[in-house]
């Protein structure tokens, strides 16, 4: 059996050094051919040295450990290293992916090393289903993460670009070429049209109630029917009322 090579990727220098020392202790003929301090560097190392094993920290600048794994899983075995990632650890257990927790303990590392040695003895190439496993992991973790809905609205103000979290926006209203952004403590104008906002905002939170109005449902205080039969929304803040156009009346049917 030829010499087995590995790389270590972690953004914190001390942690790389520590893992390297621990590995030297429990697996002294393992060659650490490179250390990376971010995602892109880790990818480079794999390309340059073709290691058998990659120890990847999950949270790294550039690409995360998971993203690196996705790209190299067909070429080397992966061991994830993490301080604490609840969802990830659960997912690893389901998929039987190897991982170690920081601070790395000698005993735990020994188990991983024994497992790796056994696997490499059986076959020098990583299992062919590894890329598929990593892909499933990525999908599972993405489902647990925040979705890609718009979270911030950029608004120009007196002294620069202000960022308003969408959670704090009461409603958007089309006004000429602009869109009015209304929060509990003020109004601003942005250029993004209602149509575009509607596509990018979380549809469970922002409802279209009029051709030119999107309302944050968390800001609705009361829904009532006016004398003319229109639905009227009373807002918590600012204390205003909005009228629902007939086209969107059905949204409030169950209420």
């Amino acid at each position: 059996m030829s010499q087995i090579k590995a790389i270590i990727a972690d953004d914190e220098k001390e942690l790389r050094t520590y893992l390297k020392a621990q590995l030297a202790d429990v697996w002294n003929d393992l060659i650490i051919c490179g250390e990376a301090k971010n995602g892109p560097e880790a990818l480079n190392l794999v390309d340059t040295y073709q290691p058998d094993i990659a120890f990847l920290d999950i949270r790294m600048p550039g690409f995360s450990g998971m993203e690196v794994a996705e790209k190299v899983a067909d070429r080397c075995r992966i061991v994830f290293v993490t301080a604490h990632d609840q969802y990830a650890i659960k997912a690893f257990e389901n998929e039987a992916v190897d991982y170690i927790l920081k601070p790395v303990t000698r005993d735990r590392l020994k188990i991983t090393v024994t497992r790796l040695k056994e696997q490499i003895e059986v076959s020098s190439v990583p299992p062919s289903d590894l890329p598929a496993i990593i892909e499933r992991l990525m999908a599972e973790l993405k489902a647990n993460q925040k979705t890609d809905y718009l979270q911030w609205i950029r608004v120009s103000s007196r002294d620069g670009i202000r960022l308003i979290p969408t959670d704090e926006i009461s409603y958007f209203k089309a006004s000429d070429k602009y869109t009015l952004v209304v929060t509990g403590d003020g109004e601003s104008l942005i250029k993004k049209p209602i149509k575009e906002l509607y596509r990018e905002l979380n549809p469970d939170v922002f409802w279209q109630i009029h051709r030119g109005t999107l309302v944050n449902v968390n800001f609705i205080d009361k829904v009532s029917r006016s004398l003319s039969g229109r639905l009227v929304l009373k807002l918590k803040s600012p204390p205003e009322t909005l009228t629902v156009s007939r086209t969107y009346k059905h949204l409030f049917k169950q209420m």
Binding site: E14, Y18, A83, K102
Partner: peptide
């Protein structure tokens, strides 16, 4: 916060040797 806590402890542990 666990991530902060464990990463910090790992660092201290590593530094003890070096």
């Amino acid at each position: 916060e666990p991530h902060f806590l464990f990463n910090t402890l790992s660092n201290i542990l590593g530094l003890l040797d070096t």
